[in-house]
Design a protein around this nucleic acid. Structure first.
Lengths: 200, 200
DNA sequence: GCCCTTCGTTAACCCGGGTTAAGAAGTGAA
DNA sequence: TTCACTTCTTAACCCGGGTTAACGAAGGGC
């Protein structure tokens, strides 16, 4: 378990500062709470039934958040890449066991926090409390954006949004996972792609 | 503009306390920031283009959050009833102009806050900061639940969820607004209801 | 009373996406 | 190399929901 490189530290700090102001003291406290950790491709950062206790900042690699229904059908909630935050957030908030798989799509390096530690620190730090709040708010905005896409966009339009927003992702991720992310089957996505290809 | 009744005060306080702990001092500060206000049926608490500056606790009545796309098609994001919070939350958070209509479906009594006031107060109050955080987290959980419903439930199942969760609402709200809430057309909802009726 | 609007229902037709199945191409392991 | 597995594509068929239109019922305003 290596320490953070100077570059990684700077990146994380900048990332957090973009969410909310972060004094040197608070940053030092946050940094001390995290530990570096890695996952092999195919490994899991979270699985259903496990207690939800940790979240992480992605240092490198790509993760996928998903769950399965009773009949084993997967639904992809999100993909997370470098400097994004990953974890079973809804379950952490609610103090419930995890219901979501978080899987490494590539080898992944993480900077991991125990949620309870951060929460405890936020009890005495306005800055940290504010950071947690801003973080929750951003998560909310992202979900509302997704709600908008389901309410007002067709599957084809949702696919084009994904292509526009995460061009790198579309290259490197199995297509059926993108289909699941936009709420359709792999076959349907294949047809959409054929349609778009023909049309151009 | 009347003051809050003792009952209303107690209800609001209990409601906020259920979100996060609230000392007498903090409660007094919060209460002092709000003002009572009312809307006639059909009135708007928020409209697109307006600056997003306020949110409110519903004292009585029913509100509907929705937006329209370019072609005037409405999509309902949420319904809000007594003791729930209403406001263009995503826009408040982001400091952007409102994009959502918030319409009174019945005459409505509100206890209104200016978001900037509450934010400012949270700069010096850990308790208030925590309250805002918990509030954002709950909003997030609600949206994630909605994402789940779009990803894994059919329109018919989504309708049954609504019936189970908001039985009162289904009685009193125009059906086409419920259709919009679950992401289908009024005609489709009518067919689903006919199907369900036949089946039982 | 009347008109007008809103709301819900039903029917006909179309189309997008689900389902199943088959096959092609690529990848990895034995 | 061969076999197995995954991924993607295409086709055929079905079904749910969108669209349009017509109709009836309910409610408000005059």
């Amino acid at each position: 378990m290596r320490a953070l490189t100077a570059t990684e530290e700077a990146e994380i700090r900048e990332r957090l500062t973009a969410i909310a102001p972060l004094s040197p003291r608070t940053w030092a406290a946050v940094r001390a709470l995290g530990t570096r950790s890695s996952l092999d491709k195919g490994g899991f950062f979270s699985r259903p039934q496990e207690p939800a206790t940790r979240f992480a900042i992605v240092l490198s690699g790509l993760l996928r958040h998903y769950y399965t229904d009773g009949r084993g059908r997967e639904s992809v909630k999100a993909f997370r890449g470098p400097l994004e935050l990953s974890g079973p957030y809804a379950e952490l908030i609610q103090g419930r066991p995890s219901r979501t798989f978080i899987e490494a799509l590539t080898p992944v390096e993480l900077f991991v926090f125990r949620y309870a530690d951060v929460e405890a620190a936020a009890q005495t730090s306005l800055e940290l409390s504010h950071l947690l709040r801003r973080f929750g708010e951003l998560q909310f905005v992202a979900k509302e954006q997704r709600e908008y896409e389901f309410l007002q966009l067709s599957a084809e339009e949702r696919y084009q949004q994904v292509c526009a927003r995460f061009p790198a992702l579309v290259q490197h991720i199995p297509q059926h996972q993108i289909a699941s992310y936009i709420g359709i089957t792999p076959v349907a996505l294949s047809r959409i792609r054929a349609r778009l290809g023909r049309r151009r």
